[in-house]
Amino acid sequence: MPGIDECLLEAMRLPGARGAALVDWTSGLALGTVGEFPGGDHEAAAAEAAEIARLAAEQRAFAPVDDAVAADPPLEDLIISNRDSYHLLRFVPTSFDSSVFLHVCLGRSDGNLALARIRLGEMAGRLVLG
């Protein structure tokens, strides 16, 4: 059964993965980090990713339309791309109060965004459901 570290190491096996982290978006604290993030400062990367994750999660414009049962968080993932990398933020739903997401940084040339999105969703499920 994977803990935080095993989950992050698995994420690092995704093609093109440069860095992986589990981040609490209310505080901006990285609960675990593996690999490298741009700028070399994984604490700053976690705080910045947390800020955008929180903003996205709180906007009604991005919540599902048929949100009869308010899911917490209402989002699945956030994808941010630039010239040389993809950032994939996967929200991790838990049955207790938490606010965490998995953050993976992929190299643009060797990363596979579609595959990473599917795998990261599976990893998020195993992390909290076993």
Partner: peptide
Amino acid sequence: AGLVARGALEICHLGAVY
């Protein structure tokens, strides 16, 4: 005992500790 996933326990525990 399989009552809670290890990742879930770690996340909840870290939240409570901090």
